[in-house]
């Protein structure tokens, strides 16, 4: 079985996001970029399935500008066999990403597509579900456990009510939640090895996917700030303050 893994590059989760004062975007110049944390988890899961002999090949996919190469090399250093770089200079919205993934799926015929449940830049939480719909295949989102046997995946999902288990026939789309696994660290020799692994480059337009914006973002604003309150000296003072506000 082949596994396609979504491997998006985003602003690192430790960066304090600043909105530009003219409201045209967030500051990204000189800001640290990393793999979307959920995608590292998706990749780790794919690698473990390969190590268990369930998958033979793990392919990381990134859709984005020319300088995504170094990022995809990280995915290769972590252990992916090869990478596909879908190039575009436009920002990629989930519907476009899903349409591009569909084209790759038709060509590569994977048994499983593993994506992150959400990209921590747009926080959209859409691409996997959209791909599954366009592909007319099952989806198992927010996965915290994946077991594969007999052409099926049994997936435990983190839902609001608790842990839900569903069974889906393969091929299918699975999206990772945080507790699926803990991604491995990249070791220096692996970085060297990754240099000789192949990266296929295709233009988004050549896949027949238009990268036109579906949603227009017209303004960026900083969120309303909560102001710092007061420090109380002990439990009694806290209870008195809460009582005074009518909260107790």
């Amino acid at each position: 079985m082949k596994i396609l893994v979504g491997y998006k590059r985003v602003v690192d989760y430790n960066v304090r996001i600043q909105v530009k004062s003219d409201g045209t975007g967030v500051v990204t110049d000189g800001v640290k970029l990393s793999a979307n944390p959920f995608d590292d988890i998706a990749l780790e899961e794919a690698l473990r399935l390969r190590e268990k002999g369930i998958a033979e090949e793990v392919v990381v996919v990134g859709i984005g500008p020319a300088d995504l190469t170094a990022h995809l090399r990280n995915g290769l250093a972590m252990g992916a066999n090869r990478a596909i770089h879908v190039t575009t200079t436009d920002a990629v919205q989930p519907l476009t990403a899903a349409r591009a993934f569909l084209k790759l799926v038709e060509k590569e015929q994977p048994g499983l597509v593993l994506l992150g449940k959400q990209a921590i830049d747009d926080d959209a939480n859409q691409t996997g579900q959209m791909l599954a719909a366009l592909w007319d295949r099952p989806q198992a989102t927010f996965a915290s456990k994946v077991e594969i046997a007999d052409g099926k995946a049994t997936v435990t999902r983190e839902v609001d009510a608790g842990l839900e288990t569903i069974e889906v026939e393969l091929p299918a789309v699975v999206t990772s939640d945080l507790r699926l696994n803990e991604p491995r660290f990249i070791k220096l020799p692996d970085i060297m090895k990754a240099k000789s692994k192949p990266i296929d480059v295709v233009e988004l337009a050549s896949l027949g996917v238009d990268s036109g914006d579906h949603l227009k973002t017209t303004h960026y604003a900083a969120p309303a700030k909560r102001s710092k309150g007061v420090m109380v000296k002990d439990a009694a003072e806290l209870v008195a303050a809460l009582k005074q506000k009518g909260l107790l």
Binding site: L95, Q129, A132, A133, L134, T141, D160
Partner: peptide, 19 residues
Amino acid sequence: TTFGKDVTPRVAALLGVAQ
């Protein structure tokens, strides 16, 4: 909610629209 996040993008894609 996890319910809406799971199902709604699938609906959007079937309708061919963004979410």
